[in-house]
């Protein structure tokens, strides 16, 4: 189940990023500044998420807490069509210039969900390591699954999904998927209490 969550979160990050270019184009165009903004905001979100995820993982990590942290981007994506249009229009009206406008828009729309999706990697690593003792192998598998998920997410979205369904529908679908992953995790009895850790000397 954890492996599945890691795979799908990897897929959703990249799929959401591809769709993000379509979300930004109507108000900010498809200039090189838009692509630059989009990619850097996602990477900023992920790196912040990795850092935060690592810190949070040291405080009694559990599948239930992971579930709650997946619900945040789940709900953000599920309700994305309701706020993305008005927010984009509002930033467009502010007219902050060809570089700053798309950067601010990308930050407002994509930073928060990508932070939470970034948290997943270190958090699941910690969860798995304290239940299994082959930590190198576990971390390696999680990295591989996450990136493999990203590849699949990128390809499926750009080659296929975008040609059969609307952008808003797809983003909401990702939200549904995140919630669907979060629910079983909530009822999973997987946790590691910090005092158990043997490396606390």
């Amino acid at each position: 189940m954890i492996y599945l969550a890691v795979f799908f979160c990897g897929a959703i990050v990249m799929s959401f990023e591809i769709l993000g270019s379509r979300v930004l184009a109507p108000n900010f165009g498809s200039s090189v500044f838009v692509w630059g903004s989009l990619i850097s905001v996602f990477l900023a979100g992920l790196s912040a998420g990795y850092y935060l995820g690592g810190r949070i993982a040291d405080i009694n990590p559990s599948a239930r807490k992971l579930s709650l942290m997946l619900l945040v981007p789940g709900i953000l994506l599920l309700t994305f069509p309701a706020y993305s249009g008005p927010l984009s229009d509002w930033i467009f009206m502010k007219d902050l210039g060809v570089r700053l406008s798309p950067l601010i828009a990308a930050t407002i729309l994509f930073l928060l969900p990508s932070i939470f999706l970034g948290i997943v990697s270190p958090y699941t690593a910690k969860l798995m390591i304290c239940s299994v003792h082959t930590s190198g192998k576990t971390i390696g598998t999680l990295y591989a699954l996450s990136t493999f998920g990203s590849i699949i997410g990128t390809l499926i979205t750009s080659f296929y999904l975008i040609t059969i369904a609307g952008v808003h529908m797809l983003i909401m679908g990702q939200g549904v998927l995140l919630v669907a992953i979060a629910l079983p995790l909530y009822f999973m009895n997987l946790q590691c209490a910090t005092p158990v850790s043997s490396s606390s000397k």
Partner: peptide, 10 residues
């Protein structure tokens, strides 16, 4: 030197 859609909107 601007994206056509943005130019028209503005």
């Amino acid at each position: 030197a601007e994206d056509g859609r943005i130019f028209i909107k503005r």
